[in-house]
Amino acid sequence: MTSIRKWFRPFEPATKSGNVIVFSAWLIIVVIYWIISSLGTKHLFPTPAQVCEGFISLFNEGLIVHLASSLSLCLQATFFSLLISLVIAYLSPLPALRPLSVAMSKVRYLPLTGITFYLAMIVSNARQMQVSVLVIFMSLYFITSLLAVINDIPKEEIDHARSLKCSRWEVLWEVVIKSRIDYVIDVLRQNLSITWMMLVTVESILVAAGGLGVLIKNSDKFMNHGRIVALQLVILAVGLLLDSALNITRKGLFRYSKFN
């Protein structure tokens, strides 16, 4: 009894088993709510059985192939945008190049449609189009986050390197690049949710190349609730999986990386 009361006290440290119990309780509540709210003939959410059916139908329609296509698009776009963003962000400590990174970061307020319009005039291939749209948008977000990481480096760390006879380029290499690689992985992880959302949107704009976005669009057309929810769950699960994979990678590779 006392332990339950503790769960309602702010800043009370919880035990591992306590956390498991709290988490399962929430899960059970959500599932019960779902079952109850989808009883009867008129309901907003599809029943668990409908979702199950939707899942099977998705699978038969090539869910795995579409998933692989989405993941490969995500990988390609992430690779190129990260490369571009890192170069631009790492050069931001140079006063002459700083406006470039600051401007790029501000441009993220431009709407997606405007840029796709111009891109469509240059790029004809659907896949290329998807990659370029994603690369442009992801870069803007990456640059913003990377700039924040770089600006947060305490002056003392820079001065410490300078006092150890590091040239300015060495300071950049040691303090900004090497000592903050773990932050880059975290920037990647934090922006992944935006990427993942944009990815599905971009795919549903340009259906020719396939992917999870196309599946959503098809399900929309038939108003198949079970399928839509099943698909959402798949997309959510894959996103969370990528998120934790990145987190585990960061903590595994960098023992000193102790934040969150």
């Binding site: 305490p154 003392e156 760390e157 001065d159 410490h160 390197a161 300078r162 006092s163 150890l164 006879k165 590091c166 040691e174 303090v175 090497k178 000592s179 690689i181 960098f254 000193y256």
Partner: peptide, 27 residues
């Protein structure tokens, strides 16, 4: 000029990505 004079600051700043041994090797 910077680097002419060694400096240990009040906050004992170190390289966060280097172990003690690696730091001394770098020095």
């Amino acid at each position: 000029e910077e680097g002419d004079v060694g400096f240990v600051d009040q906050k004992y700043t170190l390289f966060r990505h280097k172990t003690l041994y690696q730091s001394l090797l770098f020095a």
